[in-house]
């Protein structure tokens, strides 16, 4: 549904998107994650035609975005990070505005508006002024506006920042219903737990994909390389762990330490830490391999990229 080949876009000296290729199927949700400035928002803007690429190709449902811009754009719903509403207009009037911008004929927009407001759960607020909506409701109205013209492709730029988890939960239920209607969804998110819900995740840095795949595939790269260590005194444990030659990183997680270790060293490291901690009168309550998270893998990639 979305096919991107070798996409490039620079701003002056900065290569915001640098040879990016992506392919997303219908009914699939794909998450773009990465540090600030990695090119996530630029990618979404290129995909919705708001920005022109320096080179590369974007095909949406087989239509070339550069050549048949209007037809391609008609397929896209885009929810930018900062979504602007008309605070003085009601929910319905806002939606009507977006419908008209999208060229929806007058006889279609009214039934579609009520349908889409019911879909996002704003049906009973149709006459409320947009300025009086809560954060979560504004976000739903943003989604409704992005969906008003039945897009086949939905681009979401950090849609759930700071909203109530209950609203986020509802938001995800809506996304699942769209996936069932074969919509392809590309989302950028700062939440790793949100990324791990998506079919595939791409980790972007310097405008390039460092890795992509299903969340379980990605975390399997670090299988057996993250240990959890709990015990006392915490400072001593952290010191001993950090000094171990095969421990690459020791992070504090509340009352636990997470250690990232060299491949295949779990047994050795556990044995060595056990005796070193005992020798210094520390005590271990728990020392075991745990399941790595997406974040562990991305940190590992970033650090190996820096080291190289």
């Amino acid at each position: 549904m979305i096919r991107v080949n070798d996409l490039r876009r620079s701003f002056g000296d900065l290569r915001a998107v640098d040879g990016l290729s992506l392919s997303i199927q219908k009914g699939e949700i794909y998450a773009l994650v990465g540090p600030d400035g990695a090119g996530k928002t630029t990618t979404l803007r290129l995909l919705c035609g708001a920005l022109q690429p320096d080179s590369g190709h974007i095909h949406l449902a087989g239509i070339d975005l550069q050549r048949q811009t209007e037809q391609a754009r008609a397929l896209i719903g885009y929810l930018p990070q900062r979504f602007s509403l008309y605070a003085e207009l009601t929910v319905l009037e806002n939606l009507r505005f977006f419908a008209e911008v999208r060229g929806l004929p007058a006889e279609e927009w009214h039934p579609r508006s009520s349908e889409i407001l019911d879909f996002v759960g704003l049906g009973e607020f149709a006459d409320r002024r947009a300025g009086l909506l809560s954060g979560g409701m504004k976000q739903k109205l943003g989604l409704a506006a992005a969906l008003v013209h039945h897009p086949k492709i939905l681009l979401l730029d950090e849609p759930t920042g700071g909203v109530d988890p209950v609203t986020r939960q509802n938001f995800w239920q809506l996304i699942i219903r769209l996936l069932r209607q074969d919509v392809a969804v590309l989302i950028s998110t700062p939440y790793m737990d949100e990324a791990s819900r998506c079919h595939r995740v791409g980790f972007l840095q310097y405008g390039r994909l460092l890795i992509e795949g299903a969340p379980s595939e990605i975390v399997s790269r670090l299988e057996g390389r993250v240990l959890e260590l709990v015990g006392t005194p915490r400072r001593l444990l952290k010191q001993i762990a950090s000094d171990d030659p095969q421990v690459q990183n020791a992070h504090s997680f509340g009352d636990r330490l997470h250690l990232r270790i060299a491949a295949g060293s779990a047994e050795t490291v556990m044995r060595r830490l056990g005796s070193a901690i005992a020798a210094q009168a520390g005590s271990i309550e728990r020392l075991r391999p745990v399941k790595p998270g997406l974040e562990d893998v991305f940190l590992d990639l970033l650090e190996s990229a820096h080291a190289a």
């Binding site: 939960q169 995800w172 699942i176 819900r197 079919h199 299903a214 969340p215 379980s216 595939e217």
Partner: peptide
């Protein structure tokens, strides 16, 4: 009580 997506499962 609740069900949702979790990547490939």
């Amino acid at each position: 009580a609740r069900a949702g997506l979790a990547g490939d499962h």
